[in-house]
Design a protein around this nucleic acid. Structure first.
Lengths: 209, 209
DNA sequence: ACCATACTGGACTCATGAGTCCATGTGGAG
DNA sequence: CTCCACATGGACTCATGAGTCCAGTATGGT
């Protein structure tokens, strides 16, 4: 262990701790990650962690919330692609789908899902923190875009919430299965194939003839 | 705590332990469940647990494997409904879909997913034990049924593996989201609605005109 | 009836990790 | 320059739980 001499100081230790915590939790899981591990990963002493957070659980919550925010932001950015779809709807959907799947396959995103699942029984309020941000953010945003497309006659008239739910289902579930719950990384080509298959089925069901 | 005097004996303690273990793990998670808890739930002494299993991890593996087998069997039974679909294909698909979703919503099934996700990093071979049985069992079985239907002209010609993957995606992902990863139980009507929506979209994409 | 086998419970060791305390160092604001 | 708020690390307490050991007890096959 070669220690890099990092300048002491009261900079953004807190942020460093939050970032490091998520990395450690992602690698080792909640119970296996000791506060000491987190402190070391952050280049900080254990006591400093306790200066910023009440206890281990508070560190965990903060790390999960921050990551959920980041992942949601990425997802929303991908959906924005549909705001101005251009002449080729299929191409726009394909790009959006591929963008969403790349985020979904990212280790950060996988770890977020894993950790949420894992700690549900212990921290029920994790749902508000994580799922509350993701599902309650992404679904409606997608539904908004699809509603506009339907109104513009690009899709057949339909319930946009249901369409959004199914579009996302066609994307995420196959990737989740194929990547073995995020444990093996899918080849880019597979991801593209899933995206195109999803868009194809979606357009058959919701497209205008 | 009123202790029921249970007759001692070398009956199927092992089975009792496996069953009890899954219940305890489902309630408390792997790390939170102590071997003592499991022994008490099984009405057995801690030492007896260690008579039958090498260590806590072995108990866990056995419990997960047994549950995965049971859940897979239920799933396969539901898919069997499609072997003789009868004149009304939509009705047959609806029944199958609803059957699959009821299993999927069952606490046992939810706990199985939760625990698998949670312990992935620690026990990578859990994938072979659990996912290996479920995904590798259900997907192909579904694909078989769909292939027959396509051959009989009930569905348009298509890749049955892809169709099966998407059919299952349309079922499970929405339920997973709506039930908040299995933490709140969905009203029967919601489950039925998801099933019918999935079948509707599936038939629009894969049905014959 | 007998004996091997399995079950019991309770005491034991041992490792681990959360959270606290404190004496000491250090950077930046005034 | 001088505080002061924050950072450090190392030692400490305390609780918990895995896994072992053993002496005593019930069971079922023969």
């Amino acid at each position: 262990m070669v220690e890099v001499r990092v300048p002491r100081g009261r900079i953004d230790k807190r942020q460093a701790i939050v970032d490091a915590a998520f990395r450690v939790f992602a690698r080792q899981g909640y119970e296996q990650a000791s506060v000491q591990d987190i402190a070391e990963e952050a280049g900080v002493s254990k006591q400093t962690v306790y200066n910023h957070f009440q206890d281990k659980q508070a560190v965990f919550s903060a790390a999960m919330a921050a990551t959920a925010d980041a992942v949601l932001a990425d997802n929303l950015a991908a959906v924005e692609r549909l705001r101005d779809p251009g002449p080729d709807l299929r191409a726009a959907l394909n790009e959006t789908a591929f963008g969403l799947l790349k985020i979904c396959c990212d280790p950060r995103s996988s770890a977020l899902r894993s950790l949420t699942y894992a700690q549900l029984t212990r921290f029920p309020d994790l749902l508000e923190v994580v799922q509350g941000r993701l599902a309650s953010g992404l679904g409606p945003a997608m539904a908004d875009r699809l509603a506009r497309l339907a109104l513009a006659g690009e899709l057949r008239p339909c319930d946009p919430e249901r369409a959004a739910e199914q579009f996302l289902a066609l994307l995420t579930a196959p990737v989740e299965t194929r990547s073995r719950m995020g444990t093996r990384k899918l080849p880019e080509d597979d991801v593209k194939a899933v995206a195109e298959a999803a868009v194809d089925t979606f357009l058959r069901a919701y497209g205008t003839r």
